[in-house]
Computed example of a mutant assay.
Amino acid sequence: METSRMSLSRYSAMLTASLLATACASTPSQAPLSGRWQADDSKVQLQLKDGKLSASAGCNRLFGPASVEGGRLVVGNLAGTMMMCAPEEMAAEDALKKLLASRPQVEQKDGRLLLKGDGRTLALNAMPALDGGKTRFIYVQGKTAPCVGVAPMQCLQVREDKNAPWQHHYGQIEGFTPEAGLNYRLRIKEFDVANPPADAPSRRWVLDMVVESEVVKP
Results as ranks from 00 to 15, higher is better:
Ala198Ile: 10
Cys147Pro: 08
Val75Asp: 15
Arg159Glu: 01
Ser18Lys: 04
Gly142Tyr: 12
Lys134Pro: 12
Gln47Arg: 11
Asp94Trp: 10
Gly58Trp: 00
Gln30Val: 13
Cys155Arg: 07
Gly76Ser: 13
Arg187Lys: 14
Val68Arg: 05
Tyr139Leu: 09
Phe176Cys: 06
Val74Ile: 15
Leu122His: 00
Glu212Ile: 09
Met127Thr: 00
Phe191Pro: 10
Met1Gly: 14
Leu19Tyr: 11
Phe63Glu: 12
Thr121Gly: 06
Glu2Asn: 07
Ala66Leu: 05
Val158Ala: 00
Lys109Phe: 03
Ala39Met: 05
Met6Ala: 12
Ser26Ile: 07
Arg36Ser: 05
Leu156Arg: 11
Val68Tyr: 07
Lys189Phe: 04
Gly76Glu: 15
Val140Ile: 06
Ala151Lys: 13
Ala200Asp: 01
Glu107Ala: 09
Ala17His: 07
Ala126Gly: 05
Pro201Gly: 04
Leu20Ala: 03
His169Trp: 14
Ser202Asn: 13
Pro104Val: 11
Gly71Pro: 12
Ala194Asp: 15
Leu20Gln: 08
Arg10Phe: 02
Val150Thr: 08
Gln167Gly: 05
Lys98Tyr: 14
Gln108Cys: 03
Ala21His: 08
Ser213Val: 02
Gln30Thr: 11
Leu33Phe: 13
Met14Ile: 07
Glu69Asp: 15
Thr177Glu: 09
Val193Thr: 13
Val215Thr: 12
Arg204Lys: 12
Glu212Asn: 10
Ser213Asp: 04
Met127Asp: 04
Ala164Ile: 01
Leu19Pro: 14
Leu207Ile: 07
Ala164Thr: 09
Leu113Trp: 00
Arg112Lys: 08
Asp40Leu: 01
Arg5Gly: 00
Val216Glu: 15
Lys217Gln: 10
Val216Asp: 15
Ala123Tyr: 04
Ala79Gly: 13
Leu53Ile: 02
Gln157Lys: 07
Lys109Asp: 14
Gly119Thr: 08
Ser42Thr: 06
Thr22Ser: 11
His168Thr: 00
Ala151His: 13
Ser12His: 11
Ala95Trp: 03
Ser102Ala: 11
Arg103Cys: 08
Pro201Glu: 07
Glu214Met: 01
Val44His: 02
Lys98His: 14
Thr144Pro: 15
Pro197Arg: 09
Val75Asn: 15
Val75Lys: 01
Ala91Glu: 14
Ala17Arg: 11
His169Pro: 09
Asp40Gly: 01
Asp110Ala: 05
Lys52Tyr: 04
Gln154Lys: 13
Met1Leu: 05
Ala86Lys: 04
Leu33Ala: 10
Arg185Thr: 09
Lys43Ala: 08
Val211Lys: 03
Met153Glu: 07
Val106Met: 07
Lys43Trp: 02
Phe176Arg: 10
Ser18Gly: 01
Ala31Asn: 13
Gln172Phe: 10
Gln30Ser: 11
Ala123Glu: 05
Leu15Phe: 12
Lys189Gln: 14
Ala13Met: 11
Ala39Thr: 02
Lys43Gly: 01
Ala129Val: 06
